[in-house]
């Protein structure tokens, strides 16, 4: 089984967001970068599929700056076979441009499965997998939390409001991973050592800006100072009164 996993380097979820002096981007000084958590599910799923088939290849593709080599090494340490960095200092604000760059790389190989995280926890675009699938003309199932593959047929489950959709699709296909799909492994020391010797190809790409122009990045409005209504059950009556009369939400 030939599997491609597309990953992204993102600020860790505990990051306190500081705005850079241009007023349009994140000040990344002191920020810890990690593999996007949803992409970890995608990497893990790819490794399990390859292990089950007991043959094949897992390639990891990442659009990002030179420092994203580290993110790719993490995936290689988990067990992926090789990495490709589509190197660009700037990631376009327009997700269609991102998908275009990734699709251009993916189309040169015939993959059985192409995996993405369902979204990245920095830009919250949740669409690059589906856009890429359309550009490649491949079937796509997004935000899957369960997957079964038998030959060239797959069945996936995806969460919708108030239920679970059970979706059938043929391979090759693009799938985007949600939490719950699996429990990603931690790279073992042996894997970390092995990852240093695995092939990592760096390909510079020209990322055009596309049709989205960032006007400003700003902190969210402060919430007005709240109050402690009181302590213990005695405060419940007053809380309900405030919710009814002051906040008017009951």
């Amino acid at each position: 089984m030939k599997i491609a996993v597309c990953i992204k380097r993102v600020p860790d979820s505990e990051t306190r967001v500081k705005i850079a002096s241009d007023g349009k981007s994140l000040d990344d000084s002191g920020v810890k970068f990690v593999m996007n958590p949803y992409d970890e599910f995608a990497v893990e799923e790819a490794l399990r599929r390859k292990e089950k088939a007991s043959s094949g290849e897992v390639a990891v593709i990442c659009l990002g700056p030179a420092a994203a080599q580290e993110t790719i090494r993490t995936a290689l340490a988990m067990g992926a076979d090789r990495g490709i960095l589509l190197q660009s200092d700037r990631i376009p604000a327009d997700p269609f441009e991102v998908a275009r760059i990734i699709a251009a790389e993916l189309k040169s190989t015939s993959w059985d499965l192409l995996l993405f995280g369902r979204m990245a926890i920095d830009d919250y675009n949740h669409q690059v997998g589906a856009l890429t699938a359309e550009l490649l003309g491949l079937p796509c199932v997004t935000a899957i939390s369960h997957l079964e593959i038998e030959g060239t047929k797959g069945v996936a489950e995806r969460e919708i409001e108030g239920g679970i959709e059970v979706v059938e699709f043929p391979l090759p296909a693009v799938l985007t991973a949600d939490k719950g799909l699996n429990e990603p492994r931690y790279p073992a020391l042996k894997g970390i050592m092995a990852a240093k010797k695995k092939p990592l190809e760096v390909k510079p790409v020209q990322a055009s800006a596309g049709t989205f122009e960032v006007v400003a990045l700003s902190p969210p409005p402060d919430r007005k100072e709240g109050k402690i209504v009181g302590e213990g059950v005695g405060a419940v009556g007053e809380l309900v009164r405030l919710l009814r009369e002051e906040a008017k939400v009951l």
């Binding site: 979820s13 919250y124 960032v214 990045l217 902190p219 969210p220």
Partner: peptide, 12 residues
């Protein structure tokens, strides 16, 4: 909202 709402991105 980006970064889960830790910042707001204004886009044209």
């Amino acid at each position: 909202p980006v970064y889960a709402g830790k910042a707001l991105l204004k886009v044209k």
